[in-house]
Amino acid sequence: MLIDDILPDFHFQETHSILIDAPAARVMAEALAYKPEDDAFFRGAIALREAPIRGWARLRGRTHDRPAFTLDNFTPLARNSQEAVFGMVGRFWQAGYGQDPLADLQAFETYDQAGSVKLVLHYHIGGEGKACLTTRTRIYCLDETARVNFARYWMVIRPVSGLIRRRVLKTIKRRTLGT
């Protein structure tokens, strides 16, 4: 799998799957077209996550004009007919997400900022007859400081992240089947 080539070693991982009675190509097209920001729960979770940033800006008499977090925060890293891998790097536990710019796969592979993590989001379609769509998130911590900081953050966000992933899969299934 592409994810194993891009991030074979990891410290944290979350995986969710769903069976969809449709051709794999159609399922992948729907997965790639999906925008989580269309989901009210996702928007609410992000608004809650960003509330301290916006509140702090207001207290300082400023506006927080940064766009809300979306799938556009991820950089496409690799893709084939059965898989798509997106990545991001930084210190995501920081109030402003601590995301560092990432141009492409090469930048992802060579990224080595101390105290940071590498994260990949992976869509994979397998199975025969019915397509099995799997979403997998992997996080690799570049050092012990990053591992400690991310572990604390992961404990808080993982339940919400899992719920969002399951909602994503159900929505992709519904859209694929036209129901």
Rank of each mutant, 00 (worst) to 15 (best):
T75Q: 10
C132H: 05
L142Q: 15
D143Q: 09
D100R: 06
G98N: 11
T110L: 14
L59Q: 11
H124E: 04
T134N: 09
I125N: 13
H64A: 15
L121H: 13
T63F: 02
G96P: 00
N149S: 11
V148R: 12
L59K: 07
F86R: 10
T137M: 14
L119P: 02
T145C: 08
W93C: 00
T145M: 09
V120A: 13
G55T: 10
W93S: 01
Q106L: 02
G98L: 06
Q113W: 07
L59Y: 02
L119S: 13
M88C: 06
T75K: 14
D143L: 14
G61R: 09
A68C: 07
E109S: 15
E128W: 01
D72K: 07
C132N: 07
R60C: 09
G87P: 02
Q99F: 06
D65T: 03
F150K: 04
G87F: 10
L133E: 03
L77C: 02
E83S: 03
E144A: 06
G87K: 13
R66G: 04
P67F: 02
N80E: 05
D104L: 02
P67E: 04
A107F: 04
L121V: 14
Q113L: 06
G61E: 04
G87A: 10
A68Q: 07
D100G: 11
F69D: 00
D143W: 10
L77S: 05
C141Q: 06
R79N: 04
G61Q: 06
G90T: 03
P67A: 11
R58M: 06
G61N: 09
L77K: 06
R136Y: 03
L105F: 04
D65C: 01
F150P: 03
A103W: 01
A107Y: 13
D112H: 05
S116V: 01
Y97E: 00
Q99N: 08
A131K: 00
L71W: 05
G55V: 03
L59A: 14
W93T: 03
G98Q: 11
P76T: 11
D104N: 15
Q106S: 11
